[in-house]
Design a protein around this nucleic acid. Structure first.
Lengths: 217, 217, 217, 217
DNA sequence: TATGAATGAGAGTTCATTCAT
DNA sequence: AATGAATGAACTCTCATTCAT
């Protein structure tokens, strides 16, 4: 379930249910605000102050939903990562596999910019316990992708797990190159234009995907 | 000043250094100091104050050699990157190729931590001109590695350029995972131990290298 | 709101408690929780949140029993002070007087840490009316101690009132020194060990008691 | 030497001397600003922001002269304490002793409000090393007062050290009562007027001084 | 009566960069 | 050329208190 959605409590007293719904809605509003800001003004200008203002809540409220700024970003990333995997699981066929593997991370909002900062910035300030949860989610994602690869290519899970690992490495790297290309100065010399190309993630990651899938067949 | 803003200033011409030899020596001292600090206390505690103290110069002097902190880090990275490529060029044989490709980035000091932050942190605050230089160096490195691959595997340069690109992506990603693994909390649950393993860069990047080289043969 | 400002609000009349017995029990639970926390984790970590959790009530409920945090602490102090005086009245004999005067404040839980913060911290945010009550209790305590002194030493009440005043001053001061000594860093230089000694209240206040009693005989 | 004064460097190069002088002047300006604010608007409204504004420096500059707010306050207290002792040493004669012991702490600006918060507030956030320095200064002050007492009363140093200790306790306590009395609400009931009297420090501490001196003769 | 989510003002602190000397 | 004191904007985070439910 994505955090932006309102989760209607299935059980519990009526009174509390409404409260839970509101609480989840508020959580969603906060994450949406952060998401929107990353999309509009970029990662660097994302301060707690700005998120609070955008979400229409007080700064203190932010800290009811996340112990630190980084925990908030991690929640955002976890949502995005889950979407990516679900999309891959849902849409992969032997024919579309390569395309889906590239499209999913490229399409889910904020996935790439957060992935690029996951280890160097976000995990800097996460308490051990949520860090461990995140590591487990990460591992699980790798496994689920491996299962998709196995199902669609017919390769053994043993081999697709390694392939999945290499895809993750490449995806991480491609996310980095994408950030670099997006920060395009005004006057780029002609010879450097390819390094500031749009769709940098897609083109570079597609190479890795092709290579990995070739290795599996 | 918002943190997303670029902080470097456009400086006027500097007076000639007292002597080119002295200047180069001082530049070396500064870079060595920064290198040492990253090695010892990590990237997070690397402040201009600390570098100046370690290098035995004043804070102001740092700004005679680099317009911003990031420019200083970029110089450090450029040095390291050059070493990595030279080592690959020098030591690659058909037999050692896979090993050398993994060893070189793993061995050159500060290469991995800087690579991991190159696009998300360092290039944040670099003036256009040095940024362009850096992009050219980066592209050149890719080409030189492709040439080594071509020479040692017999594959066409056309194919090895793509292979070189995928290696770069993976190396970037593996550098990230290495950072993550290095930030090991006190009590890691048993099931997560592999995610905080030593040599994470080597083991994960080795997979990518193998896969890429397999694709070339 | 500036920190120097007084935060208590003027509240309207409260509805009658569900039952006086229940109300008193809850009040006791709250005070006990606060007492326990001061004893265990110290004064600095004593937040309304923590008290509520420890007492098993909500934060809002706390404000049904005290208009401000400080009023709650004052209630705690008033209880402790009453205990101290009662113990002195009950146990004082000509022979035990000196010992009892020292033991009582040292033994009653939370009396010393609250006494030490009474004027500088607690009375900062007390409404006039309860502040006046507190001043009267304080004055009454002075008088009762003076009466004990008169009864046990045979000195005139006129003289023992002054003695009682000096004892209060010293007790306040000794409570302060006790706090200071309790905040003992890890590596205390040998020459400073006495300033971080245990039982600092007892040893220092005992001197004052002796001197005062000598003056009465 | 009081920190407000400019200390002209005796040795060192000319250029640096001026710098040292300026630095000391700045330090003095900062402490003076803090002193003035405590005098005017009280301890509670003393924020680093306000001190910086009053001193005409930036907030960052404050942290060049003190590692924490509390360290700044401690410097202020240390200055005041030294003045108190010097005044006692300078003015004590057998006839004036009692008066001087009371006047000195009452007259030196900010001494009492800082003394009252020394252990419960200020020492809360002081690094071990400056804390130890402070403890040594405190002990030295006790000894110097004891020496004055010995010199002026003829009592043995052994006895005056204990007397000095009791004086310190009482002075601490009297400083507390003084704070309490100064925080006078608008409508004090007649019967409580004495508890909000002016000169509370003087009157209460004078009792202790008299009693202690009586004990020495 | 009781709850606890929300508030929000401001606190202390950091650090890359500047510039008078 | 070299210094390092000064800057100041921005940062994250706390917590007593309120009030809609």
């Amino acid at each position: 379930m994505t955090s932006g959605e309102i989760r209607y409590a299935i059980a519990g007293k009526r009174k509390r249910a409404r409260s839970d719904g509101e609480k989840e809605a508020r959580r969603g509003a906060i994450l949406n605000a952060a998401r929107a800001m990353i999309g509009q003004t970029g990662f660097e200008s994302l301060t707690m102050n700005a998120i609070a203002k955008e979400a229409g809540v007080s700064k203190g409220t932010l800290y009811l939903y996340a112990r630190t700024k980084e925990e908030l970003l991690l929640a955002l990333f976890a949502d995005a990562m889950e979407q990516v995997v679900q999309q891959i699981e849902a849409e992969a066929t032997p024919e579309t596999l390569a395309r889906v593997l590239v499209d999913a991370p490229a399409q889910v909002p904020v996935f790439l910019p957060l992935l690029a900062r996951l280890f160097t910035v976000i995990e800097t300030n996460i308490a051990p316990e949520p860090l461990f949860e995140q590591k487990r989610r990460m591992r699980e994602m790798g496994l689920r992708v491996a299962q998709v690869l196995a199902a669609q290519t017919g390769a053994s899970l043993e081999r697709t797990r390694e392939a999945s690992m290499v895809l993750m490495l490449s995806m991480q790297g491609a996310a980095q190159f994408d950030i670099a290309a997006a920060r395009k100065p005004d006057d780029v010399p002609e010879d450097l234009a390819p390094m500031f190309a749009k769709e940098t993630f897609r083109t570079s990651y597609a190479m890795a995907v092709r290579l990995v899938l070739d290795g599996l067949s």
